[in-house]
Structure formats: structure tokens, C-alpha cells
Simulated scan of single mutants.
Amino acid sequence: MLTQDELEGLLRVRSTPGQGPQYLALRDQIARGIEMGRLPAGTRLPSERQLQTGSGTARGTIREALFQLEAEGLIYRRDRSGWYVSPPAITYDPTRWAGFMSYVAEQGRTPSTETLTKELVPAISAVADIFRVAPGTPLHLITRRRSIDGRAVLVERITVDPALAPGLLDHSLDGSLTQILTQHYDLKVARNRVDMRPCALVKFAAEALGVKPGTPGLLVVRTSLAEDGRVVEYDHEYWRHDAIRVHIDLNVRS
């Protein structure tokens, strides 16, 4: 582990004529340190004030460099704690109906789940259309925060039809929902429809993840369907953009 003095020395900006914007010079130094392993995952960077004092660089320049690295997923902020080097992203295959707990553990990481709310709510029109029920029909709505190695990486809102899973909310939902639906309700998914798009984390998701609203994120909307076409689960996942790497392995037949 580098000492604070070594960190500050490593991150000191050394400008040369024609190098380009100074914030890119600092960005490149930090990125090189991460790439070469001199700044391992979890390393806390010096504060903006320390970087400013050590390098003589303007505070605004330092912030531009840090924001650029955050947008690239190389570093992240902890609320009221500072900037840290991001851990490796988890590989996510949206074509599988493997639960979060399973595919994170398969990659040698430690998953955990915390149920924030679970309630019965009347279906709004858009959701009612998805489940093919009348607007106002009560549906299970579950909000959970999920972590990898103790770091919160996503907040999800899951809707399930009580007609398919009566009493679901009586279960502990801090583990695998996939396992509960399979073992207790014999619900098996035949098809997944997945939409993904970059997003700015909305207020409830940002607060649950301990970041500022507007922080870059990835929204994954998944509709899981049974063999007969009934919707088993409708899920909105708000991911930290630096926590996930989407990977799909397809066999292409000529």
C-alpha cells in the first residue's frame, strides 16, 4: 500500500508544452497508476485540497480530471469520504436468468442483498399492460439494495403478480428471489426481454447508493416470462455504471 506522500507524488501533475489541457495530464497519470497496479482497487486518493497543494494545480482543473475518471468508471466517490479506485466490474449476462447472488458468487465475489421495502401497490396503467391486468390491480412491489464485497452497486424495483406468487411478501427477500420463485411457486422463466440504457441516477436510487443524484448509472429493465407468456417478474435495476460489464457470448451458426 502506498503512503500518502507516495500517492501525492504519483499524482503530481507534470505539465509539458503542447501536452494539452492540464486536467487530461492529471487524468492520464491517475489512469496509468491504476493500469500499472500502483493504485490498486480500493485505494483512497488524496483529497482535492491535497492534490491542489501538492501540485499547484487549480481546484477546477483537479475536479475536471476526477469527474473524467469517474465517467470512465475508474474511480468513484463515497459520500463524505472522498475518491477511491473502483474495484473490478462484475460481468453481467442479461440472457441468463441466474440470480444476482449466483452470478456474483461464481466470479469469486461476495454478494449481499438488503430489502428496503416490500408492499402491495395498485398497478399503474403502463405496468398493468405488461402484466395484462386491469389498472389498479394489486401487485407486489419489492425494493432492494444489492452489494458486492460490501459496496452497494445497484438498487432494484421488482414487480411480481400476486396471482402467481401469493404470500411472496411473507418470505425473507434478502437472498435469492429467483430461488424463492422457483422452489416455492414452481415459476420457471423461458424468456427474458432486457432493455439497457445509460442514465443519471434518480434521487431514490442515488440516495440508496450513497451518491449524488445525477451520478452516471446504467438502467437495466428486465421482463421475465414463463413458457405460457405470463410475466413472472418485471424489474428495474439502477446500477452504478462502474460496477457492471455487460458480456454476451453467442453461438453464430451459418
Rank of each mutant, 00 (worst) to 15 (best):
Q4G: 06
D5K: 15
L10Y: 07
L10N: 06
R12A: 12
S15A: 14
T16K: 15
T16E: 13
G18E: 08
P21S: 03
A25E: 13
A25Q: 13
A25H: 08
G33A: 14
E35A: 15
M36E: 15
L39T: 09
A41Q: 01
G42Q: 01
R44M: 11
L45H: 07
E48D: 09
E48F: 02
Q50K: 12
Q52N: 04
T53Y: 05
G54S: 13
G56H: 08
G60A: 14
T61S: 14
R63G: 00
E72L: 15
E72C: 10
G73K: 05
I75C: 02
R78D: 10
R78T: 08
D79A: 11
D79C: 09
Y92W: 12
P94F: 10
M101D: 10
V104P: 07
T110S: 15
P111T: 06
L116N: 00
L116R: 03
T117S: 06
V121N: 09
I124S: 07
R132Q: 14
L141N: 11
L141V: 11
I142T: 09
G150N: 04
R151S: 02
A152L: 05
E156H: 05
L169T: 02
D170W: 01
G175A: 04
L181I: 06
R191H: 14
V194H: 10
V194L: 12
D195R: 14
C199F: 08
A200K: 10
E207L: 13
G210P: 00
V211M: 05
V231G: 12
R245I: 03
V246C: 08
H247E: 15
D249C: 07
D249Y: 07
